[in-house]
Design a protein around this nucleic acid. Structure first.
Length: 440
RNA sequence: GUCCCGUUCGUCUAGUCCGGCCCAGGACACCGGAUUUUCAUUCCGGCAACAGGGGUUCGAAUCCCCUACGGGACGCCA
């Protein structure tokens, strides 16, 4: 805001691959800054390399941005006064700007392409995160390819000028290119925008920056794995920026309030999926019961079919006791499968072990609940404690085998709540089935 | 090779601008304990860093220089 000029920022991806984490973070920082300053966030598609641009990746990009909650004020599908927003449709504009360069003698033709003549003087890149960076651009470079299409450097600068971009926020891999861009702005007699070259995201381990090729690098992967977009977004905010008050889990409005370009770090950051995962879990547990249900239901329906979910009250109860324990929505189906299957799969080796060690406990428990009239978590806890005391055992001796016999698992929701939710019928059936199998 | 940027716990970071409050704080991960029920939840505790060397200063993570290491750019890719 500082200079009173209207803040206009842009995210300018090229739709040549999928939407990756680095791009998402760049989009996010632009969006945050625009919202912080009540400026304009523009989406511009740099598809000048037609051979590498596809419709599919454009849609992946738009969907990914929407999924992360990054809405754009101008751009594809939104329109705006500075359009069109696809570079492939801006040929006339590039032609006009090229003419200006021709007139001032800054361009020339060679090998069928049009080149820009550099000034031969160092230029200063005014960068908000790095401070002024002085760099000499030594070689002339192509601005229009021999096939007539504008090069990245040329189209990028022309568009930033035509769209009146006030701040260029992009990855640090462009810092060296910025001297070309400043030369171009100056050749047009324009004052370059403020730059903010943000640190790169490095791969989780090993050398180099994160590339689209490796697993965990694409926004779509997290979406497919049912990560919460708010969690991913929150995590990405903290990669290269911090609110400086030790807070990490923050509402997006609070982040917008505090976000500032000057607070962006200068060093590259390594992507830590474990921390993201932890953050996702925190968001999941903070969801209201209702929202958790809304998110989880379609995932379960896809896995178990709508028929298994016919009893809505039962599903709601299951989800309620799972929410506090499950790590992610991705793991939810496996975590709660036994609630929706007729007979959960029992691992043979474990069955053998529990049969050998705990058949007596299971028999005892089964006969105790055969006559039990109430089947709440509290009742079951009392019942089990009495049983254990009477038999000279501990509750633990019963819990493991019962959980296994009833769910086929060794971990799961809180034990008594699980039995109560399953209900007396299912619990008795499964215990009988387990014991019957022992007699064969 | 040339040029540009960077360097605080294993990782993300606070502190660096305006040197003392920092024998360096938070989070993830990891390890241990508690929740007289498992656990992947929750709570408590622990481990762990100023890249190295010179300077400036009464005093440096903070300022200056050098070295090392890391990253990036040098395309008719973006």
């Amino acid at each position: 805001m500082g200079d009173g000029k209207k803040v206009r920022v842009r995210f300018a991806p090229s739709p040549t691959g999928y939407f990756h984490i680095g791009g998402a973070r760049t989009a996010l920082f632009n969006w945050l800054y625009a919202r912080h300053c009540q400026g304009t966030f523009i989406l511009r598609i740099e598809d000048t390399d037609r051979s590498r641009s596809t419709d599919e990746s454009l849609h992946t990009l738009l969907d990914g941005l929407r999924w992360l909650g990054l809405d754009w004020d101008e751009g594809p599908e939104a329109g705006g006064a500075s359009g069109p927003y696809l570079q492939s449709e801006r040929g006339d504009i590039y032609g006009q700007y090229l003419e200006r360069l021709n007139e001032s003698g800054r361009s020339y033709e060679r090998d069928g392409a049009i080149w820009f003549r550099v000034s031969g003087r160092p230029v200063t890149i005014q960068d908000v995160v790095h401070g002024p960076v002085v760099r000499l651009e030594e070689k002339d470079f192509v601005i229009v390819r021999s096939d007539g299409s504008p090069s990245f450097h040329f189209a990028n600068v022309v568009d930033d000028l035509a769209m009146e971009i006030s701040h260029v926020i992009r990855g640090e891999d462009h810092l060296s290119n910025a001297s070309k861009h400043v030369e171009l702005f100056q050749a047009f007699g324009a004052i370059p925008p403020q730059f903010a070259h943000i640190p790169l995201i490095l791969k989780t381990s090993g050398p180099g920056k994160m590339s689209k090729r490796e697993t965990g690098a694409l926004v779509d992967e997290y979406r497919a794995r049912h990560y919460l977009p708010e969690a991913l977004r929150n995590y990405l905010c903290l990669l290269g920026w911090s609110p400086k008050n030790d807070l990490e889990i923050m509402a997006i409005d609070d982040i917008i309030d505090r976000f500032d370009l000057a607070g962006i770090n200068r060093s590259n950051a390594r992507f830590d999926e474990k921390k993201l995962s932890h953050m996702n879990g925190t968001y999941l547990r903070r969801l209201s019961k209702k929202n958790f249900f809304l998110l989880a239901h379609p995932i379960l329906a896809e896995k178990f079919g709508p028929a298994a979910l016919a009893d809505g009250a039962y599903v709601a109860k299951v989800l309620e006791i799972c929410q506090e324990k499950v790590r992610s929505l991705e793991e939810l189906p496996a975590f709660c499968a036994h609630f929706f299957q007729k007979n959960p799969e029992l691992d043979a080796a474990l069955w053998e072990k529990f049969f050998r060690e705990s058949a007596a406990c299971l028999e005892e428990f089964l006969s105790a609940i055969e006559m039990a009239k109430d089947f709440t978590a509290d009742d079951l806890e009392d019942l089990l404690h009495h049983l254990a005391a009477a038999g000279g055992r501990t509750a633990r001796d019963y819990i493991h085998p019962i959980r296994f016999a009833c769910s086929g698992q060794l971990v799961g929701p809180s034990f008594y709540a699980m039995l109560a939710t399953l209900g007396a019928g299912r619990v008795r059936d499964r215990l009988r089935r387990f014991l019957d199998r022992c007699r064969q």
